[in-house]
Simulated scan of single mutants.
Amino acid sequence: MVGRLDDRRSRPGRDADNVNAARERPALRTILFTSILVLVGIIVASPSSAGDKPIFGGELSDDAAHISAGRSEELARRNLVVPPEERLVDYERAPYCREAAGMWVKGFADGSCPDGADLARTSVQCEEGDTLVMPMWRHERATPTSPWGPWDDIDPGGCGVDLLPVLTEADFRRLPLPAPVLTMQPDRGWVLINIETIVYTDPTPVTLRTDLLGIGVTVEATPTRWTYDFGDGHDLVTRNPGQPHPDHDVFHEYESPGTTTITLTAEWTGRYQIDGSPIWRDINGTATTTATTAPFTIEERTSRLVSGLCTDKPKPPDC
Rank of each mutant, 00 (worst) to 15 (best):
G233P: 05
H248P: 00
T265G: 04
D232R: 11
E220F: 10
V237F: 02
T210P: 02
P203R: 07
Q243W: 14
T183S: 05
V237N: 03
L236M: 11
I193M: 14
F230P: 01
H234C: 09
T222D: 09
P241W: 10
A221C: 04
T207N: 10
Q243H: 13
E196N: 10
T260G: 02
W190D: 08
L208C: 07
G231W: 01
P186W: 02
H248Y: 15
R188W: 06
D187H: 15
L236Q: 14
P257Q: 14
S256G: 09
G216S: 12
I198C: 01
T201H: 05
T210R: 03
T201W: 05
E253G: 13
L212M: 07
T263P: 00
T222F: 03
D202K: 10
V191R: 01
G231L: 09
V217S: 03
V199E: 01
P186D: 06
P246N: 06
D235M: 15
G231K: 04
V217K: 02
D187N: 14
T238A: 00
T207Q: 09
T197S: 12
T210N: 09
W226N: 00
I193A: 09
G231T: 11
L212T: 12
H248D: 13
E253K: 13
R225Y: 01
H245E: 13
D202P: 05
E196P: 06
P246W: 11
D232A: 08
P257F: 12
Q185E: 12
T218R: 13
P186R: 03
G258A: 10
Y254E: 01
T210L: 06
I195H: 06
T227I: 05
D247M: 05
G231E: 03
D235C: 07
P244C: 11
P246K: 07
V191N: 00
A266Q: 01
P246C: 07
D202M: 08
E267I: 09
I215F: 06
V199S: 05
W190Q: 11
L213F: 14
L208G: 03
L213C: 11
D232T: 15
Y228T: 05
T224K: 13
W190H: 14
I215Q: 11
T210V: 08
P205W: 10
T210M: 05
R225E: 14
V237Y: 00
D232S: 09
W226K: 02
